[in-house]
Design a protein around this nucleic acid. Structure first.
Lengths: 228, 228
DNA sequence: CATACTTTACCGACCGGTAAGTAACGGCTC
DNA sequence: GAGCCGTTACTTACCGGTCGGTAAAGTATG
């Protein structure tokens, strides 16, 4: 909100810059949602500026450029993945429980507020060379973490007779797809969906069939992490 | 189709019209590949024209507009899905075999030449209202067809205890994701990937576990169907 | 000449991005 | 406490470039 201008400001001094003290955070969050809905190329800086009630140069006061904005959002999404999935799962020794933790925590993240962010992983084409390399590297690290769990299961003879790369991508796709279809306001309750997806995923790769699971992740608040 | 109406005129002289006789088809195929790689909004009509060795107005002689081009490609993708998946699966009575047919045929379609097309399902934002409604309706029909198979399995008590909507979306995501990661030139052979994905999918939703499958789909050639 | 196809030249709209100015503060001097 | 100054947080006005799309004039073939 502009402080005061000729247009309207009869109010007694409305606080200088900060009426919400986290303007940058709001910009990143709004942009993430818009890019998620319309795609990066189809979302203009003007539209983003309008959405946060600024002019375009006003927006450029906070962000350096469109690519940098996208990169910041993607980096935040990867941070979230590391903090909410990898951090919890990497301490689990037993392979099946670890796999279950990865899937359920990732799914939980997607059904909650971070849904818009995770899908941004797709928009790598909008980044510069160096930015793209960094995001790709982090994505590969996450993928390898998942596949290692499947390899561990295979070493114990508990994995279905499938290639672990194929299996890892399949599970990833299943979970990622959640952000395409799951609606918070819909018929399906988030916890049930997370449980079902986890069951299908684990049952899909385990040699025997499935097992009723443990490892229900705690809720997570994307805003608390301070996007940007 | 414009120009020389007859196909494959075996005249020895170099036809002034041009050296490939199915120009419109090439335009659609090239555009599909480019939009798949860069996204719809980031792909300009000029770039498409260049790629098929035309100027922009030359391209507009064949296509009515950018939206219509996207819509034609998406419609073709849905046609392909109906012809190569639904047509084969709908004649299978037994629910598990039908499910297996859907997944394996869809996966096969994605690992082969139609990979670029199927992902275009994502670019619905680029369509007009009426176009989007039509594509969405066809997508929903396909989804319902898949879910019905899961419902049939559930009626026989052979489905894992999960919501069939969740299960259908999960399988769909798993299969769709193939186009994001599978590379024809890569280490993994298409038939193996299709088999593994089918195993994981069916094993993931079946109550008991998995069964070694039948129903390996025949190869399909997207170009033979005559895109456009 | 008619049809089929392709070209050059151009349109207004919008793109990402910037230069330059300014209103409102907090802090400083006197 | 009056006057000023630097910083923060924006604004209006504008840039060159590209976008989707078209008008109109060719050119080759039947």
């Amino acid at each position: 909100m502009p402080r005061t201008s000729k247009t309207a400001a009869p109010t007694p001094i409305v606080k200088p810059g900060l009426f919400d003290d986290e303007r940058a955070g709001k910009i990143y969050r709004t942009a993430a949602q818009m890019i998620y809905e319309k795609g990066f190329a189809a979302t203009s800086m003007n539209e983003i500026a309008d959405a946060v009630h600024l002019t375009k140069p006003g927006l450029y006061y906070y962000v350096k450029g469109k690519k940098e904005l996208l990169f910041a959002i993607m980096s935040f999404a990867m941070d979230l993945l590391d903090a909410e999935v990898v951090a919890h799962a990497s301490v689990v020794e037993e392979p099946e429980a670890r796999l279950r933790t990865i899937v359920s925590h990732h799914a939980r993240l997607l059904t909650h507020e971070a849904g818009a962010l995770a899908i941004l992983i797709d928009e790598v084409a909008g980044l510069s060379e160096v930015q793209r390399e960094q995001i790709t590297r982090r994505k590969r690290e996450y993928f390898d973490f998942l596949r290692q769990s499947l390899d561990d299961l295979a070493a114990e003879g508990r994995l279905r007779d499938v290639d672990t790369t194929t299996a890892a991508f399949s599970l990833l796709g299943m979970v990622m797809w959640l952000s395409r279809w799951y609606q918070t306001q819909g018929r399906l309750n988030a916890e049930t969906v997370v449980r079902d997806v986890t069951e299908i995923a684990v049952g899909g790769v385990l040699a025997g069939g499935a097992a009723s699971g443990v490892a229900v992740p705690k809720p997570v608040d994307a805003r608390a992490v301070g996007l940007g």
